[in-house]
Computed example of a mutant assay.
Amino acid sequence: MTGETPRFSLPRWRLTRWLADTGPDVPMEIRYALVAGLFGTMPIFIAGLFNTVAVSLLVAIRIPTWPFILWCVFDILCCSARLVVLLIARRRAARHEPTPTDLYILLGVAWAAGIGFGAFISLTSGDWVSATLVCLSATAMVGGVCFRNFGAPRMAGVMIALTLGPCTFATPFLGEPILLIGFVQLPFFIYSMSRAAFGLNSMLVATMQAEREHAFQAKHDLLTGLPNRVGLNQALKASLARYDGTRPLAVVYLDLDGFKTINDTHGHKAGDRLLQLVSDRLRRLVRAGDLVARIGGDEFIVLSEQVGGGPLKRLGDRLVRELSQPYSLDDQVRVTVGASIGIARAPDHGLDLESLMSAADSALYQAKSDGKSRCVIAPLPREAASRLLPQAAPLSTVA
């Protein structure tokens, strides 16, 4: 898996699924990317852990009572667990193994609740130095919570509420009526920060969807939805990069016979419809795992890593036969086209993109020259053919 993008598991538990939900109609690949964002930005993560542990430890030293000692112990254990789970998840994601996403999300929520608890007991302790330190720390954490977790806006909202909410509920115990304004201020602050997280999430999803569409359009033919020349080149390079000589790799180059006549007779709209029907039929004819691409005009490529030797010719003949069956462009127009095919295979015709495409193109030209609507496998190069010739017996030597 070296060089592949790490993939973090989507949450599976009902609560964590709700916390990490990004809204309806979000493609699965974007959901994976948003979950991966929860595990990113390590500097902010480490800074947040260090800050909360340092603050809880200093306050516990200043006020060594059981509530503060328990808060400090909880904070240290929770932060340590979050760090361990994060490192395990990153390692598993790099190997494309299931990651403890649910546990990681719940630990994040528990960490926020710990900060809120510390703020509550600090405010009600009467020690304004500790209260000021803890409240400043809690407020500072809100920015990091939003920045790290806006990929899961509900989770961000819950963490903000757990972090700052206890500050509001502590105000009735402080003996300062002016502080009751917090019941008005903090809810609005929590709401606005939560809405900001939802807004950032919506912008991110829209941006990722646009990038996804642009990437698709760059690599696919808009008429048929098949990979275009760029997409084919990438797929073929990837196949050649992992080629180990133990499995077949074939490039099937296909050109329609008589397409121009249909295009000229019935118009470009009918020609486009025919190309779509040919594409659909090609998808059904090839094996699962084979790639079908349209590289321009009425030219198609099938990239197969499953058929080699004799079966290649049978595959080509089958494609010629099936693609030559009539097509219904509408209720009144039925047309027929032929298909000429040239096939090259690795390693006989090379182990690079240019060599394989050149050999397949030459075989296609030969199929056209031989009368069209037929399949030709590119002949072996001289070097390969010479290796197949029987070796001459050595001359006997006269003593």
Rank of each mutant, 00 (worst) to 15 (best):
M203D: 07
A215N: 13
G225T: 11
F189T: 14
R212L: 13
F198K: 02
Q217H: 15
M208H: 13
G199S: 14
A215V: 01
H220D: 03
D221Q: 11
S202F: 02
G225Q: 04
Q217G: 05
R229Y: 10
M203L: 14
Q217P: 03
L200N: 07
A196K: 03
L200R: 06
L186E: 02
T207R: 15
A206W: 04
T224V: 11
P187W: 04
N201D: 01
P227N: 00
F188N: 05
L186R: 12
Y191R: 07
F216I: 11
V205E: 09
F188Q: 07
L223V: 10
A210F: 05
T207A: 15
F189Q: 10
L223W: 04
S194F: 12
T207S: 13
R229P: 01
G225V: 05
F188C: 10
H220Y: 04
D221S: 11
M208D: 11
F198Q: 09
H220Q: 05
N201F: 02
I190Q: 01
L200I: 09
Q209P: 00
N228A: 07
F189R: 04
M193T: 10
I190P: 05
L200D: 03
R229G: 01
T207Y: 13
V230C: 00
E211G: 06
M193K: 05
S192E: 08
E213H: 08
F198T: 08
K219D: 05
A206T: 07
G225M: 01
F189S: 12
R195T: 13
L200P: 03
P227E: 05
L204S: 09
H214Q: 15
A215C: 02
L223D: 08
Y191G: 13
G225F: 00
M193S: 10
A196G: 11
S202V: 06
Q209G: 12
P187H: 09
L200W: 09
P227T: 07
P187G: 06
